[in-house]
Computed example of a mutant assay.
Amino acid sequence: MSATQAVVTDNRTKRQVERDTRRNEATAQKRLTSRGATIAAVIIAIFWTIPTFGLFVTSFRPGADSNSTGWWTVFVNPSFTLQNYGEALTSGGTALTLGASFINSLAIAIPATVVPIFIASLAAYGFAWMNFKGKNIVFVFVFALQIVPIQMALVPLLSLFSRGLTLFGTQIFPGLELRDVDHSFATVWIAHAIFAMPLAIFMLHNFIAEIPSEVVEAARV
């Protein structure tokens, strides 16, 4: 067989494989997107959603109606109120109500997310695009901090916040009074930032390192 015949045979084989692949893909897509499968998926989704929808409707119904009739009666005798949500947000078994606890969660979650991401993005950019001596060693050390169990750091962290850090008679970090409400959020922010920093730096480094150098050069220009 000559070289020309071999090339023609290879092209025919390649086209045949492509046709078979397209045919198999079309068959699989047709089976997965058939009308029966679509109807079955819709029916399953409806039955799956009904209990959640019933709880949602019940949350807006007066307590007397919810105790005496089912939620589906709302379509015949509609009666809605926001009293349930008001009682839920203003009640609580501790010194804080549910609404105050929700605000506290936002006050902790938002800064504890933004602060480590902001600091980690600066460090990740340095590791990805700046060349300095010992960069790889420092990056491996930062990545290795992820294997440190959080439980091992809780007691030293508590000691750092309560008594501070003093080296050779010089106070490096002042102690924060944990019982003081004015500083309670700050301690939580610092703790979350410390524990999240290694993973955040590692993930952002991998993302920033994939940015084409042309984009960085264009930004500098």
Rank of each mutant, 00 (worst) to 15 (best):
A6Q: 03
T9N: 02
D10F: 07
N11S: 00
V17I: 09
E18Y: 04
E25P: 00
T27M: 13
T27Y: 02
Q29G: 05
K30I: 04
R31Y: 09
R35H: 05
T38E: 06
A40V: 14
A41K: 05
I43L: 15
A45V: 14
F47H: 04
I50W: 11
I50V: 15
P51I: 04
G54R: 09
L55N: 09
T58H: 08
F60M: 12
R61T: 07
A64E: 07
D65W: 15
W72H: 06
V76L: 13
P78F: 05
F80H: 04
T81E: 01
G86S: 10
E87G: 02
S101L: 04
S105L: 14
A107P: 10
A112C: 03
T113A: 03
T113L: 09
P116C: 11
F118N: 01
I119D: 01
Y125G: 02
Y125A: 01
G126H: 07
F132Y: 13
K135Q: 13
V138N: 07
F141T: 15
V142Y: 09
M152T: 14
M152E: 13
A153P: 07
S159Y: 05
G169F: 06
G169A: 03
L176V: 15
V181A: 13
S184D: 12
A186Y: 12
H192L: 05
H192A: 15
A193C: 06
A193H: 06
A196E: 15
M197H: 08
M197W: 04
P198N: 01
L199W: 04
L204F: 07
H205W: 08
I208A: 14
P212L: 08
E214A: 08
V216F: 11
E217Q: 05
A218L: 04
A219F: 09
